[in-house]
Every structure is written in C-alpha cells, then in structure tokens.
Amino acid sequence: MTASPASPRPVRLMLNKAHYPVTSLGPGTRAGIWTQGCTIGCAGCVSQDTWAADPGTLVDVEAVGAWLAGLPEPLDGITVSGGEPFQQPEALAALLDRVDAWRRERPAPLDVLVYSGYSLARLRKEHPALLDRCDAVLTGPYVERLNTPGLSWRGSSNQRLTALTALGRERYEGTGPAGPPPMQVAVADGRIWFIGVPRRGDMDRLSTRLRSAGITMEEVSWRS
C-alpha cells in the first residue's frame, strides 16, 4: 500500500492585529496587518507592544487571507507593518502570495505596501523575492529627532518610500496627503487603537489632555 502524501504544514504568522478600514497608512481605504516581533527596537517607537516575538500570537496565514477576502468594499490596498514583517520571511511570503492570488480575481486594482525598519539596500540583498511581491515599501529605522512635519506616511525623514511596480508608481510617486498626518481611532476588544504615524510629542500631548479630562491610559503601545 502506498502511503498518502502528507498535507503541507500550515504557514503561521505572528500577528499583533488586523484592522479594516485603515485610511492613515497609504492611499485610499485599506486593510492593515501588524506583525508581532521586532528586534530593531527604534528609540521612540510608538509600537513597542509589537516588539516581543510572542508564539502565542501565531495564526495560520490562510486565516488572515480568509479575513481579507471577507472584507467589504471599498478596499484599495493592504498595508503590512509591525513589528518587523521581514523578520518572518516565510510567513510574509505566504501571506503576500495569498494576497496576490486573491487580488488577481478582483476587478479593481489593490496594492500592497509593506513597512520595514531595514534599509532598502539590505532588503534587496537579503529578501529580493519578497520585494518582488510588494507594490511599494517604506524602509529605514525610525529616528525620533528626524520626526518632522510634512512626511506623509513616514515616521522620520530618513525613511524612504519606494514604488516597485507600475501600480506602486501610480499610487505612491509624487506627493502624499497634504496637511497634518492623518490619525485614526479604533475601539476593539476593550482597547483603543491609534492608527497612523504621529508627529513627535503627539502621544504625550494626547496623554496630558486625556488626564486633564479624568481619563488615564494604563497600558500604551509606545512604552514597552
């Protein structure tokens, strides 16, 4: 008797959260996926809750893909941030392959933007196949002293937004959103999420204003 071939093991991703709609991390209305785990540890990072590589956050990539496929319209793109997505290369590849297969069935174009604290040169050397799956990447470590006005979707002026495909060039080359950076507030599972790229000092000012209104934030993502 010939043994049946074993089923391929599911690829799993350490996931901090997924949210729809996101309108502050890329053009249009988007799905946001935040990976869990980052060893870069940029000073002043507003997402320190994503630093620990926590196996308890593992989810099957297929489950994330099913969540994406069930989202309503409008859906113009997907933003993957973190954490550091490129520290989970196998899972990121599986996720982006799943997205690519799904978006080919859609009538309207959907772009993929991935944030990374690594330089573009390093990603081109170590993860060229992953870059081939992205329409645009925003690369470079966050540098708090370079957090200045007018940076669109970037946290600091050293970071680089690079379009990698024709769709990426169409949507990301040229100017980003005008005015102050957009920020969103989302409430889920008893927690409040601030989604976007704040300017330096914004979160401390927010904490001060909330305290003056009698509201205390006990656990915040920008302190580990």
Rank of each mutant, 00 (worst) to 15 (best):
R160H: 15
A186F: 06
F194G: 13
L123R: 07
G140I: 05
E126N: 11
G196A: 02
L123P: 08
P181S: 09
S152C: 12
C134P: 07
R122L: 15
T165L: 10
F194Q: 11
W193C: 03
M183Y: 01
P182Y: 01
F194I: 15
A166P: 12
R133V: 05
A186T: 06
V185Q: 07
L130A: 04
K125T: 13
S156N: 12
R171V: 07
G155C: 06
E126M: 07
E144G: 02
E173V: 11
P128W: 08
V185M: 12
R169Y: 02
I192G: 05
W193R: 05
I192Y: 03
N158F: 02
W153Q: 00
L131P: 12
A163L: 13
P149W: 03
F194A: 09
A163N: 10
Q184I: 01
G140E: 04
Q159G: 00
G155L: 13
S152P: 07
R145F: 06
A136D: 06
N147W: 08
V143N: 05
G196D: 09
G174V: 07
M183I: 01
G155S: 09
G179V: 04
K125Q: 14
A186K: 09
A188F: 10
G176F: 03
Y142N: 05
E126I: 08
S156T: 13
T162A: 10
L167A: 08
C134G: 00
G150H: 06
A178P: 12
A136L: 02
D132S: 12
R160G: 11
R124F: 10
G176T: 04
P128T: 06
A186V: 03
G190D: 13
P128M: 05
I195T: 02
D189N: 11
T162I: 03
M183Q: 10
L131A: 05
P128N: 09
V197F: 00
N147Q: 08
Q184P: 09
T148E: 14
E173T: 07
P128F: 13
P181H: 00
G179I: 03
D132F: 08
A178E: 14
L161N: 10
S156R: 10
S152T: 10
R191Y: 06
Y142M: 08
T139L: 09
K125R: 14
A136G: 10
R154K: 15
F194D: 01
G179T: 04
C134Q: 00
Q159V: 01
L138W: 06
E144Q: 14
R154M: 12
T175P: 14
Y142G: 04
E126K: 12
G150M: 04
R133F: 05
P182W: 02
P177Y: 01
E126A: 12
W153V: 11
G174Q: 09
W153G: 03
L123W: 08
A163C: 11
P149Q: 01
S157P: 13
T165D: 08
E170T: 05
G196R: 00
R145E: 14
L167M: 09
A166F: 03
R122V: 13
V197T: 12
E173D: 08
P182F: 08
E126R: 13
R191A: 15
D132K: 09
A188S: 11
Y172G: 12
V197Y: 02
N158D: 15
G190C: 12
G176K: 01
G176E: 10
D135W: 01
L130T: 02
